[in-house]
Every structure is written in structure tokens, then in C-alpha cells.
């Protein structure tokens, strides 16, 4: 069973939940990221996700390790899909189980924020009249620390 996974196939939310279910868990929190149609007034027709797969899975495992340090009783699984996704299709599923509910909310939120910082996955928005890689690539977004925040602390 792979807890941290990049896949080209549709994601089953239940399958990700099943990876973290265990007898000591009293809560399972899930985050499901889906493809949004309207972004800043522009209508997306589909998204294309691309990943540096081996490193992306490694970074997802790293997020799992960070969660294990902060919430030792948590069990976490993350699956991120790549390829072309239509409106409302599931791009990412995170499941975190913990003995009590508060920790599961916090750890799940932590996981999605970290995905957006340290995991090499990119999405390209396709519209009826064009397309653009998200992340302001080659424009004005950069990492102020020269690398994702906190990344250096975990090496």
C-alpha cells in the first residue's frame, strides 16, 4: 500500500481514507481538491497537471514525516492526480486519521498548504482562448528564501 502517491487515474476518496483507518483513530479528516471552473472571471475548460513524479512522491512522504513529528498519533495518506482533468474532477485527496478530531483538522490543513509549497507539481489552466501555467512562472513569483520555506530545516 502506497501512502503517498502520484497517479494518472481518477482518485477514489474511499481508497485514500481506507489507508489511514485503524482501531486507535477516532477521526478521519479528508481534503478533496477539485477543478474549479471560474478563476478571476476566466472560465477554465480543463486543467493539465504535470509532476516530477519521483521527487513529488518523495516530497509527499516528507510532508507525512513532518506531520508525524507534529502530530505523533496521526496517520496520513495523500494521492495527487496528474494529466488532463475536467471541471469538478478530483485533483488531490488527503486523509488524516487521529485519535481526536482537532488534530485531524489541523494536520490535514497543514498537508494541503505544504503541497502548495514543496511538491513539484504544476498545473496549466486551459481556457477557450488560451492557456497558462499557474505559478507566475518566469514572471514575478519567486521563493524569498531561495527555497521553499522550512525546506532547509528538514534536510
Amino acid at each position: 500500500m502506497k501512502l503517498f502517491e502520484i497517479t494518472e487515474d481518477p482518485i477514489s476518496v474511499q481508497e485514500v481514507i481506507d489507508k489511514v483507518i485503524h482501531p486507535d483513530a477516532g477521526a478521519v479528516n479528508t481534503f478533496v481538491g477539485t477543478v474549479r471552473e471560474m478563476t478571476k472571471g476566466k472560465r477554465t475548460t480543463y486543467l493539465k497537471y504535470e509532476a516530477y513524479i519521483p521527487m513529488a512522491e518523495k516530497q509527499l512522504r516528507k510532508i507525512g514525516e513532518e506531520i508525524a513529528v507534529e502530530w505523533p498519533d496521526a496517520k496520513c495518506a495523500i494521492t495527487h492526480r496528474i494529466g488532463e482533468l475536467g471541471i469538478s474532477e478530483i485533483a488531490v485527496v488527503i486523509a488524516v486519521s487521529t485519535p481526536h478530531r482537532a488534530d485531524s483538522f489541523e494536520a490535514c490543513r497543514y498537508a494541503i498548504e505544504r503541497i502548495k509549497e514543496i511538491v513539484p507539481i504544476w498545473k496549466k489552466e486551459h481556457w477557450e482562448d488560451g492557456s497558462k501555467w499557474v505559478g507566475d512562472q518566469l514572471e514575478n513569483t519567486s521563493y524569498p528564501q531561495g527555497r521553499p520555506e522550512s525546506e532547509g530545516d528538514t534536510q
Binding site: G33, V92, E117, W122, G135, S142
Partner: peptide, 10 residues
């Protein structure tokens, strides 16, 4: 060596 532009997963 991989060059990683600003990521946009999730």
C-alpha cells in the same frame, strides 16, 4: 539536475 519552477499543485 531538475529545475523546479514555482509549484502549483493541489
Amino acid at each position: 539536475v531538475a529545475f523546479i519552477p514555482p509549484v502549483s499543485g493541489g
